[in-house]
């Protein structure tokens, strides 16, 4: 909301309200959060897709979430929009827990939009753009109130011609379809838009266009984003704060600049060393860090232990997520618990 659309390179978190994430949830005291996750765990059978995760999504700000595939990022997105329910813990919308009933959930969904990863799958091929973008409006009884005009405005806002109204998704390539997806996510004028890898299915040249569009829309509408990606380079461009996830749990979180220039957690360092971007601040990070092979970790140990290049004896005990300066880190090396032994 406060950031101009042109501020494409890593936005600073200067004087921003503290983005809070912590295992206890006590640091998430900000009452202004649109959506808050409090110690959320989601299991699928024996796997914990999301493990005791707490974070807050604040108005007008972008929270980037990075991690490799299968680390539970998408599950977080699905939890936030209510496509999944947590096994334990709680999600809150404006301070109140998510309703259990279908009808109650619909009221929450009215304020949360979602942009999906694969624009080829996310749009019903049998519907016209009018139906796709207008569907959320109809669902919430807002169509009669100039719904068609609103769809026109939305298509215009995402850079599609007004004549697109009666075309079908098959007329568009990936970038065009993702614009439609964004228009749909914005249809109800949500406070928060969850972007689950919105660019990873697109060509590199199109990726930049979509990112710029998202930033521009945020500047105009004061949107909050939960921006999920495995691409740190993209996340760095859009986010105010970054959360690094491994095995469903937060490894490190904090202001984007701090995390990307001075990563403290070994996993964040490894992720950053793999970034192939051309920004000068990456070069000083040196060569790529190779992670060990993934093996099962004994219960109660650090989830990253088997792959960590700096694993040591203390890692058999899981490190707590602790505040270090302006960020939160879960690593004994950083927080000092038994380091150096």
């Amino acid at each position: 909301m406060t950031r101009p659309a042109t501020a494409l390179p890593a936005p600073h978190a200067e004087g921003s309200p503290r983005f809070a994430a912590g295992p206890s949830g006590d640091a998430t005291a900000s009452p202004r959060a649109i959506v808050k996750l409090v110690k959320v765990t989601k299991r699928f059978g024996a796997t914990r897709a999301v493990d005791d995760l707490s974070l807050s999504l604040l108005p007008g700000r972008t929270l980037g979430m990075v991690g490799e595939s299968g680390c539970g990022k998408s599950t977080v997105a699905r939890l936030v929009v209510g496509l999944e329910r947590p096994t334990s813990g709680e999600l809150q919308y404006e301070g109140r827990p998510y309703p259990r009933s279908d009808r109650g959930m619909r009221r929450v969904r009215r304020h949360i939009g979602m942009v999906f990863q694969d624009p080829y799958e996310a749009l019903d091929p049998r519907c016209t753009l009018r139906q796709i973008v207008g569907e959320p409006l109809m669902a919430h009884g807002l169509w009669r109130d100039g719904g068609l005009e609103r769809v026109r405005t939305l298509l215009d806002a995402v850079g599609l011609p007004k004549a697109a109204l009666d075309s079908r998704p098959s007329h568009y390539s990936g970038g065009g379809r993702q614009r439609v997806g964004i228009a749909r996510a914005l249809a109800l004028d949500p406070a928060l838009v969850v972007c689950d890898e919105p660019t990873s299915a697109l060509d590199v040249s199109i990726q930049a266009q979509i990112i710029n569009l998202l930033l521009q829309l945020q500047a105009v509408r004061g949107l909050a984003y939960l921006f999920i990606s495995h691409d740190l380079d993209v996340v760095r461009r859009v986010s105010d704060e970054v959360v690094v996830i491994y095995a469903g749990a937060i490894m490190e979180s904090g202001p984007t600049t701090a995390i990307t220039t001075e990563p403290k957690h070994p996993y964040t360092r490894a992720l950053l060393s793999g970034v192939t971007g051309t920004m000068p601040d990456q070069r000083k990070l040196g060569s790529r860090i190779r992670l060990n092979e993934e093996r099962p970790v004994p219960t109660g140990a650090c989830p990253f232990a088997s792959r960590c290049p700096e694993v040591h004896r203390a890692c058999v005990k899981r490190p707590p997520l602790l505040a270090v300066g302006d960020r939160l880190v879960a690593c004994h090396l950083v927080t000092g618990g038994g380091a150096g032994t």
């Binding site: 619909r106 749009l123 669902a139």
Partner: peptide, 9 residues
């Protein structure tokens, strides 16, 4: 799923 997430009945 997108329709569900948008609150479509």
């Amino acid at each position: 799923e997108a329709a569900v997430a948008a609150g479509v009945p």
